[in-house]
Structures are given as C-alpha cells and as structure tokens.
Simulated scan of single mutants.
Amino acid sequence: MNKTTHIGCACGETRLELHGAPFLVSECLCDSCRAAAARLARLEGAKNMLTAYAATPSADYRKDRVQVVSGMKHLKAFRLSPDAGTRRIVATCCNTPVFQELKGAHWLSIYLHLWPNAARPRPEMRTMTGDLPDATGLPDDIPNLKTHNFSFYMKLLGAWIGMGFRNPKLEIRGQIDA
C-alpha cells in the first residue's frame, strides 16, 4: 500500500490523494450512472465522462484511503432525485465530476477521467449491462456482466473487513442541480 496517487479536477483547484491501489476498477452501465453522467456533462465547462459505449468508468477505493488535499469547499453533491441514495460529487470550480458515493457505503467510486491516460487504472469488468436495451455492441476485452457478480461483492466485503467494518463519513456541504 505504499503507492500514493495524486489526481484532481480539470482546473487543478480540487485535488485528491489516493493511498494504495483500488480494490476494484470497473465500468458501470446502469441506468442511474448513465443518466447522471449525461446530466453532469451539461454543466457549464464540464466534459462527458462516459466511454464511447456509454459506460461510467471508476476505481473503487476504501474511504480511509482517499483524502481531499485541496478544494474541499468546491465539492458539491448531485443527486438524480431528492431521495436518491447515490450522490455524485462534483468539483464546482470547473464542474468536474470527481466521485460517486452510495448511501451507507464504505468506499468511493473515483471517476477514471481524473487520471492522465497513461496512468489510468484499467477496468477489470463491466457491470449492469442488463440495463442496456442492446448490449451486443460492447467490446469483449473484459467481462460484460448483466448485474454484479459474486467477485464484485467479495471485493466490497474484503474492503470493508480491511477497514474493520467502519464507514467514515465524508462531509460534503451543498448541492447542485444539473
């Protein structure tokens, strides 16, 4: 776990420090992730973070291995609806989506577009392809899972065990609409 990675928003005002490697790198094709990414891409100055086949790529890190080192004041939450259990966190300095957090989760899904291309972690699976009307056009370079599989849940459990079953709270003040 000695490796430390520094990534940040498009303008550089908001920076994260990641300790160790992600416990999972995946591309999600669920309706929620695709809808949120499409709405966030419409923010002024924002870029589309979806792949060419509409997946949202992210690296999952235990919360205790992610530190916001600058720009915390710029981080705001976006929810698809007021009662949505998932919040996407955006650096409002430049409207860069930074990560996703599920309610009660012990991990953060850090969006892969924050890494330079050469250093970007490689996804090991695509999930929720069953939400697509037609998944036949997906590349076959990694497994294309209709839902989440046993391995996916075991990685989440392993990360939670590694944290001593803790779930640190991340205080994000303010919300945005997109």
Rank of each mutant, 00 (worst) to 15 (best):
M1D: 15
H6Y: 11
G8F: 00
G8Q: 06
A10Y: 10
C11T: 02
E13Y: 12
E13H: 06
P22M: 09
F23G: 00
S26H: 15
E27L: 14
C33W: 02
A38C: 13
A38W: 15
R39G: 04
L40G: 03
L43C: 02
A46S: 09
A46H: 05
N48I: 03
A54W: 14
A54H: 04
Y61N: 09
R65T: 05
V66D: 04
G71E: 04
H74I: 06
L75I: 06
A77I: 04
A77M: 06
A77R: 09
P82R: 08
A84Q: 05
G85K: 14
I89Y: 00
V90L: 00
T92M: 12
C93K: 04
N95M: 07
V98H: 01
F99D: 05
F99Y: 12
L102S: 13
W107V: 12
W107C: 06
W107M: 11
W107A: 13
L114S: 00
P121E: 07
M125G: 03
G137H: 09
D140G: 11
D140S: 13
D141E: 08
N149M: 09
Y153T: 01
L156N: 14
G158W: 04
A159Q: 08
A159D: 03
I161H: 14
R166W: 13
R166Q: 14
P168K: 03
Q175K: 15
Q175E: 10
D177Q: 08
